[in-house]
Design a protein around this nucleic acid. Structure first.
Lengths: 158, 158
DNA sequence: TGACATTTGTTGCATTTGCAACGATACCAG
DNA sequence: CTGGTATCGTTGCAAATGCAACAAATGTCA
């Protein structure tokens, strides 16, 4: 039965959550999931290149490139050539981008809390453990896509 | 941090698994995920309409329609008009479709087992519980997409 | 230095996607 | 019956997607 097939079940849950979440940043900010990921990443890593974003947020290079372009046009992001390496771009949030993110991050986090609130602390911990174990299966599978750097097991808190 | 944001983490895991799995049915059969889902569903429900598939496998109607069309061209699926209701289609696997499915289902199931094998029985049960709880949060959220019928908590075994 | 390989970001392009609109059929109230 | 409504499957179309090719810049090694 398809409904009991694990990959399918995870895909369905994932898509349902993603679509619900996209209403939050989509309605408030009119941005796509790719743009959302880029902005959230930039909030942490102030100045990064396209490749660094690509490596960190699970989006292929063209998608990052176009997301950055759209965000730049929208005035939410600034991209300037790196001084040291002319190939690299130095991408960062503008004031306006920071302001926008400050508006959509709280409701997004609130929705995450709402999801987590349905789980006991033990279940939350177990979920992390389980997802990590599933990732590890694919880490040993040469046919699976490699995991992006930042998605490796997190230990630092906050 | 994006890497600790639950919706993102689930999306990344889901996509990684889906892409890996698509290598199995894509390489062997040259079919897309939508076509894969349709075929697996047909293996269970012998004769169904487009809408029933749409309701059961989390694909919008156009996608089901096109998936069925491609599968029909490929000779894997037969669609005949329903006798009772001229609007409905009666869609079913052909012999060839059944044969193909018989070839790709085992390795797909094997990969699922490989994933599940990384989890203890308790973890497997916990994962189901957790996913169900997350679904339930969205079941009470009018802004979330409704859950498709067949994705409701399963109890019947096999 | 200079030829060659690598890396970076962008662009092209065919395919897929999501959503709305559509024609066709069935249902339903009067 | 008959006009209006709902349902079914398909199609149109704009946008997103994935992948490969590309130019520009850097690195490498003789």
């Amino acid at each position: 039965m398809l409904a009991e097939f694990l990959p399918y079940r995870i895909a369905v849950l994932s898509e349902r959550i993603s679509r619900r979440l996209s209403l939050i940043y989509g309605a408030e900010a009119g941005i796509s999931m790719a743009e959302w990921r880029v902005m959230v990443h930039l909030a942490r890593c102030r100045e990064v290149s396209v490749r660094e974003i690509h490596d960190c947020v699970n989006l292929d290079k063209p998608r990052v490139s176009r997301a950055v372009s759209r965000l730049t046009e929208a005035g939410l992001v600034a991209k300037t050539g790196s001084a040291t390496d002319q190939r690299l771009l130095s991408i960062s949030l503008t004031e306006e981008g920071q302001g926008l993110l400050a508006r959509i991050l709280p409701p997004a986090r609130a929705y995450e809390r709402r999801l987590l609130h349905a789980l006991s602390p033990e279940e939350q911990a177990m979920l992390s453990t389980i997802m990590e174990k599933l990732h590890r299966v694919m880490d040993t599978d040469p046919d699976a896509r490699p995991r992006s750097r930042l998605d490796l097991p997190r230990d630092a808190a906050e």
